[in-house]
Amino acid sequence: MIPPLLFQLMILLSWPINVLAESPAIAKPDCPTNCRNVSIPFPFGIGAGCYLDDWYEVTCNSSGPFLRSINLEVLNISISLDASTMLVNHPVIYSCDDNDVMNETVDLERSPFFFSDANRFTGVGCNTFAYLSSNISIISAACLSVTKAKKALLQQKQ
Rank of each mutant, 00 (worst) to 15 (best):
P91T: 01
A27M: 00
P24Q: 06
L108E: 12
V88N: 04
Q156L: 07
M1V: 13
F42D: 02
A149F: 11
F42T: 04
A27I: 00
E104L: 11
S95K: 15
R110N: 14
A149T: 09
W55V: 01
Q155C: 01
F129T: 15
I77Y: 07
P43V: 03
S116L: 04
W55I: 00
V146P: 00
A21K: 14
D117F: 03
M86W: 09
D53N: 15
P24S: 09
P4L: 08
F114W: 15
L6T: 07
S78P: 05
P4D: 12
I17W: 08
A21G: 01
L87V: 03
W55E: 06
A130K: 04
K150S: 08
S80E: 06
V146D: 09
P43C: 06
G125A: 02
T105K: 12
L72K: 13
I26K: 14
R36C: 06
L72R: 15
D53V: 02
A27D: 04
Y56K: 07
N76T: 07
I136E: 11
S14E: 15
G47M: 08
K150L: 11
N37Q: 14
A141W: 07
I139V: 08
N89M: 03
G47T: 02
I46F: 03
P4N: 10
C35T: 01
L72D: 04
K157L: 11
S69M: 06
S62Q: 07
S140R: 14
N135H: 07
G123L: 06
I139A: 00
E109G: 02
C60V: 00
